[in-house]
């Protein structure tokens, strides 16, 4: 269970405050208008932004994480782009997830190869990012998430730059990996389709708060004014 209690921060003029509970092992779609605070929610969880009040508390399972350094938190992030180091091979980009000195034991090298295989990049470890397609690059990043073995995966619109067929493929891959490794996945997306097919539930963010949460099918049937406006349905 991921638990956010009175988690607040201020960026420029905007104030954010989250109170939220996410059951373990779920795939949750984070939805909401641009600038409503979806990415901020993920950044708070990852520790890229710190909370500004002492009353704030983020726990994952029994562990309190809001005072930890980003590297110590049990989460892995995936951004829309710039997930890879351009001057490093796919293999080394994965290896960074294990040790940043890149000095791996034979067993660890084997783990990297296995992860590459799981994301469908067997034999492509020696390629550099520029020699890979956009979809393949995101697969490398997913592979690194696997070798890091963190229970929570934070995806910030990771597939929005890909074409529809590829998106579907990647969604399927994420779903498969999430089940296989029992990951809790938070996915920022603008696609109602993602919410239905990939996610078990939806958190709708509005004006810096978690405005609504519930199951995916309920979300699309909601009568809430903000949700209808967001989905483009007339009230």
């Amino acid at each position: 269970m991921i638990n956010l209690k009175q988690v607040s921060c201020r960026l420029g003029e905007q104030q954010f405050l989250y109170n939220l509970q996410i059951p373990q092992g779920q795939v949750v779609a984070i939805m909401g208008a641009s600038g409503s605070g979806k990415s901020t929610l993920l950044n708070l969880l990852a520790g890229f932004i710190s909370t500004d009040k002492n009353t704030a508390r983020i726990t994952i399972g029994a562990q309190r994480i809001d005072l930890l350094e980003p590297a110590k938190r049990p989460v892995t992030s995936l951004f829309q782009e710039h997930n890879l180091f351009a001057h490093m091979s796919a293999f080394n980009n994965l290896a960074l997830g294990i040790r940043s000195s890149l000095k791996l034991t034979d067993l660890e090298k084997q783990q990297v190869d296995e992860a590459l295989e799981q994301v469908g990049l067997k034999g492509l470890g020696s390629r550099f990012p520029k020699e890979l397609s956009g979809g393949q690059r995101q697969r490398v990043a997913l592979g690194r998430a696997l070798v890091r073995r963190k229970p929570v995966l934070l995806l910030d619109e990771p597939f929005s730059a890909l074409d529809p067929a590829l998106r579907q493929e990647m969604s399927a891959l994420v779903k498969r990996l999430a089940t296989q490794h029992q990951l809790t996945v938070l996915l920022v997306t603008h696609e109602p389709k993602d919410a239905l097919e990939l996610a078990n539930s939806v958190v709708f963010v509005e004006a810096g708060r978690a405005h609504w949460s519930g199951s995916s099918s309920e979300f699309l049937q909601q009568n809430d004014r903000h949700i209808k406006a967001y989905l483009g349905q007339s009230c």
């Binding site: 590297a71 180091f85 960074l96 940043s100």
Partner: peptide
């Protein structure tokens, strides 16, 4: 994103120099 990634991966100052700044 690169800095966020590096902080998540727990890179030290030397790692940053080697993997990010020098390249």
């Amino acid at each position: 994103e690169t800095w966020r990634l590096s902080s998540q991966l727990g890179m030290t100052s030397q790692d940053l120099w080697r993997h990010i700044e020098w390249p």
